[in-house]
Simulated assay, not measured.
Amino acid sequence: MSTAGPLTEPLRYGVYTGLALEMQSPEAVPAAAKLGLEPPRYCGQCGRRMVVQVRPDGWDARCSRHGTVDSVELWHR
C-alpha cells in the first residue's frame, strides 16, 4: 500500500492553514489562495508545513512524510 501524497484526496487538513478541515472556517483561506495565486503550504494528509519552491512555471511542495507534488503534475491530470 502506497502512502497518500500531500494533496491526494481526501484531504484531512487545510493546505493553506494546516488546520483540520472540520475546524477550518472558509474565511481562514487567504484570498490569493482562493484565486489560485498561492501554492499550498501545508500537507493535506498530516498538516505539517511543507517546503515550497516557487518557480517561473509553477511550484513544487515537499512534505517530509508524504512526498513531493509539482504543480505541473496537477495541471496535466
Rank of each mutant, 00 (worst) to 15 (best):
M1S: 14
M1V: 10
S2A: 14
S2K: 13
S2Y: 12
T3M: 12
T3E: 13
T3H: 11
A4W: 02
G5C: 11
G5T: 11
L7R: 04
E9P: 11
P10I: 09
P10T: 13
Y13L: 03
Y13S: 01
Y13G: 02
G14H: 03
V15G: 05
T17H: 03
G18W: 03
G18Y: 07
G18S: 01
L19D: 08
L19F: 03
A20C: 00
A20Q: 02
L21V: 01
E22A: 03
E22R: 01
M23A: 11
Q24Y: 00
Q24V: 14
Q24C: 09
S25C: 04
E27D: 10
E27V: 00
V29C: 07
A32H: 00
A33Q: 05
A33S: 07
A33C: 07
K34Q: 07
L35M: 10
G36R: 04
L37Y: 08
E38P: 00
P39G: 04
P39C: 04
R41T: 14
R41F: 04
Y42H: 13
Y42I: 05
Y42E: 02
G44Y: 04
G44P: 05
C46M: 08
C46R: 06
C46T: 06
C46F: 06
G47I: 06
G47Q: 05
G47H: 05
R48Q: 05
R48N: 09
R48E: 15
R49S: 12
V51N: 11
V52H: 01
Q53V: 13
Q53S: 09
V54P: 00
R55A: 10
P56D: 06
D57I: 12
D57K: 14
G58Q: 10
G58T: 11
G58W: 12
W59H: 09
W59P: 09
D60Y: 15
A61H: 10
C63Q: 02
S64W: 10
R65H: 13
R65F: 14
H66A: 07
G67K: 03
G67R: 06
G67I: 08
T68L: 15
T68S: 13
D70S: 12
D70M: 12
E73I: 13
L74G: 06
W75N: 14
H76L: 15
R77K: 14
